[in-house]
Design a protein around this nucleic acid. Structure first.
Lengths: 129, 129
DNA sequence: TTTACCGTTTACGTTAACGTAAACTTGAGC
DNA sequence: GCTCAAGTTTACGTTAACGTAAACGGTAAA
């Protein structure tokens, strides 16, 4: 069965971005859809790459960093040396993500405190009536 | 006892940024150190704000978003209406941060898989000898 | 056939978050 | 008194990640 394909506006609306954004990612080499005549045709792999890019962006990664991570997924690695270097890069990214998770947890803790203060202030105001 | 203060380069080196960055934050109204003559003097509150800004930046927040969050911490809120609106904003931020945490967890999962593949490939190569 | 979309390329514009450089002041140490 | 490091202001430069506009091609419905 033929693989499912997507038009550029399919993906744009699915992911809530503009077609310009997707073409821009192509300019930068992040996706390489095939063409049907003039029109771009995206396959499942393209779609996944875009999804990964947008996930990266949500946590503040640059497009170049997104590429770095995505490239880790395809095995251009043959020998032991390359495998070790890949593992090292994985560790670097992991450290970064774990730092980010700590940052987010701190942020959430702060929000909890603010909310608790708000609610106790509201309770007090309510009790005053 | 007088509050502890910091020079601009104190904070710059503590946080690993340039003095330009800190002055830029002042231009944008994110910090307002007092002056001793010509020189800027930062107090503990200023220092904490900068710390919060940089934490926000690490998870991809814009400076404006950092201000939004930081502003939630000081109580400019008196009446019940303002308290409810603040709680609503807290919920919005919370949702965003939780999404980010999910994104990070997915990223880490991906890294785990890559590393596992690398290690099993290395084990296989080792066994082949 | 005309209208209405969807798609395309090309190209200039925009915003955030600083970098960088120049020119000047000021207090500390020699 | 001179130097030197650390500070200041002013101002133009830079990069990433698209936005926006113009001008055009294909096709499907009215």
């Amino acid at each position: 069965m033929p693989e499912k394909t997507y038009s550029i506006s399919d993906l744009a609306s699915e992911f809530g971005v503009t077609t310009r954004t997707i073409r821009f990612y192509e300019e930068k080499g992040l996706v390489t859809p095939r063409r049907e005549g003039q029109k771009r045709l995206y396959n499942q792999a393209d779609r996944v790459r875009i999804k990964l890019i947008l996930r990266g962006k949500r946590i503040g990664m640059t497009l170049d960093e997104c590429v770095e991570v995505i490239d880790m997924y395809d095995p251009e690695h043959n020998n032991a040396e390359q495998l070790h270097s890949l593992i090292a890069r994985v560790q670097d990214k992991r450290a970064r993500f774990e730092q980010q998770r700590r940052d987010i947890d701190e942020m959430l803790k702060g929000l909890d405190e603010v909310q608790a203060l708000c609610e106790s202030a509201l309770a007090e105001a309510g009790a005053a009536n």
